[in-house]
């Protein structure tokens, strides 16, 4: 009886201190950038470029300030007469998400779920 009580108590304590709190820590909530700055935008561009395997990517300063998601598409190239080279696009654009997990602001590729932590960026739950 004493052993059972000890076991239950231990399980509850374990749950409270590790398992349950670990579960809580792993929840990623959709977020937006709280205070966009030049530094946070540079950090975001570097992170997304890294996730795309590109040297650079153009991301507006307003990105993730009103929405927790962002679409990425090919640069729309035009021919000499001004027409889009590819005006019939069948590729689905890529989607990136901004989330908060464990107090950290994180940008994720929604399909591959690869992610990068954004240490400088301040964000809050949407």
């Amino acid at each position: 009886m004493k052993f059972t009580l000890t076991l239950v108590t231990t399980l509850i304590i374990t749950c409270l201190t590790s398992g349950c709190s670990l579960q809580a820590k792993n929840i990623a909530n959709p977020a937006v950038i709280a205070k966009p700055s030049t530094q946070s935008n540079i950090e975001l561009q570097v992170a997304i470029a890294s996730l795309l395997g590109q040297k650079q990517v153009l991301i507006a300063k307003s990105a993730f300030t009103k929405s927790s998601s962002l679409t990425i598409e090919r640069v729309p190239y035009s021919s000499q007469n001004g027409q889009l080279i590819n005006g019939r696009v069948t590729e689905k654009p890529m989607l990136f998400r901004l989330v908060i997990r464990d107090g950290q602001c994180i940008v994720q590729n929604a399909e591959s779920e690869e992610e990068r932590v954004l240490p400088v960026t301040k964000c809050h739950v949407l």
Partner: peptide, 28 residues
């Protein structure tokens, strides 16, 4: 509509609708 371009350039991706400029669309 017969074109070719550098693959590195073609594969570049940006935020939808983002560009560097002034927000002007020109008619040439």
């Amino acid at each position: 509509f017969h074109f070719s371009m550098s693959t590195q350039e073609w594969n570049l991706l940006n935020q939808s609708g983002a560009s560097l400029g002034y927000g002007i669309h020109y008619h040439f």
